[in-house]
Design a protein around this nucleic acid. Structure first.
Lengths: 211, 211
DNA sequence: ACCGTCCTTTGACACTCGTCAAGACTTTGT
DNA sequence: ACAAAGTCTTGACGAGTGTCAAAGGACGGT
């Protein structure tokens, strides 16, 4: 990514100035950290392991982040910006209820399969937040983002179908999330058929949430 | 090791307290461990902390359990026997749908409030099982137990109401569990009103699962 | 009484963790 | 080109971890 647009004759990455370079490094570190976190989980991921799985040394991590919580927190916030708008395009482009449902379900299974580690990490972090107070604000914020996302999908679906969502936003989110988490956990145990079962279940539940 | 091969043909006098005492110690240790685990979570709980919060020393823990996973695994299995039959009495004694619903919801909020640490731990362990393979069998077993429990409640409810459950057992479990987990996570953040909101949501969702 | 077995304590081990500091290397301003 | 500022490497520290082994105590059978 981002390799196509170098028109600059100068090869030196010097042009990236101060603040920008710091932010770039932090993002690179965060992405590397997220990869490791997604594979090992929050508890078993150490700063050294993160540095090890990256092109940096463990000292660099501490140069760009105050401490471990600072890094994790940054990772979570970075992740947040990417995850909650996954379905927005589908919602905006769909012109019929069926189109929306199909698009939603397709994206859902796609992210389940393609980004399993990220979802594992999310459920891990949400559980950890019950014990580690410092994680709570970020987790709560993401939860609200996801709830709003589900709500956008459901209310648009209801609109297209000519009805109303029969439950409030937190309830709708909890229900859909319950199904999705079940799929993520099941996917870790045995991936075969999990995605299809998830689709079937959401398909059958979705109409019941509209009246 | 070397426990099975008794060289002495001589019977070990049937010490009633023998095996029984070992099991008793293990249970006592497990209960103490569960208390600590429920408060600190899986990751931040060390064997020394468990021993510290009990009347034993950290050496005893290793005398009765091979290693940490052995202890945790035992704890989880011990916990399992208590958690999945929480609602059985309600299911058996209820003679009307309303009675069942009220009893179920009452027990649900009661366990949410009284045993919060246990539920936190459960969701923590389920998340950890995605990363730690050794935890998976126990987690899967408990999940099935809980699924069966929810199914018993729902199918009895449908029977009393004169209908049928409109979704399959895994779906029903995922939906209810989604609502419950939302409540547990929310309870850790701010307990006020969480139980009431949970009751309201389950009350509104429950009829939609019957047809 | 003594002895062997079970139980428990204590202390040590090898290791990993987060954190930091001293110095080396690189880039930038002038 | 030279010095200052920024960036990175390396190695160390103390604390905490799981694990284990060697003693000490308790208690039964003989």
């Amino acid at each position: 990514m981002s390799s196509a647009a170098d028109v600059t004759p100068d090869e030196r990455p010097v042009r990236i100035s101060g603040i920008d370079k710091i932010e770039r490094r932090r993002i690179a570190l965060a992405e590397s950290a997220l990869k490791t976190l997604g594979e090992l989980g929050y508890a078993r991921t150490s700063l050294r392991e993160i540095a090890n799985n990256s092109e940096f040394t463990h000292g660099v991590v501490h140069y760009y982040f105050r401490d471990k919580i600072d890094l994790i927190s940054y990772c979570v916030r970075y992740y947040k910006t990417k995850c909650a708008q996954r379905y927005d395009e589908v919602v905006e482009s769909a012109t019929t209820a069926d189109e929306l449902a199909v698009g939603f379900l397709a994206k859902m299974t796609q992210t389940l399969v393609d980004e399993t580690p990220m979802h594992r990490l999310w459920y891990d972090l949400r559980a950890q937040s019950m014990f580690e107070e410092q994680l709570r604000p970020d987790v709560v914020a993401i939860d609200q983002l996801l709830e709003a996302m589900i709500w956008r999908i459901l209310s648009r679906y209801a609109e297209l179908v000519g009805g109303e969502v029969a439950v409030d936003a937190p309830t709708a989110y909890a229900l859909v999330d319950g199904l999705f988490e079940q799929a993520v956990v099941g996917y870790a145990d045995d991936p075969a058929g999990v995605a299809e079962r998830l689709v079937g279940r959401v398909q059958r539940v979705l109409p019941k949430l509209i009246q």
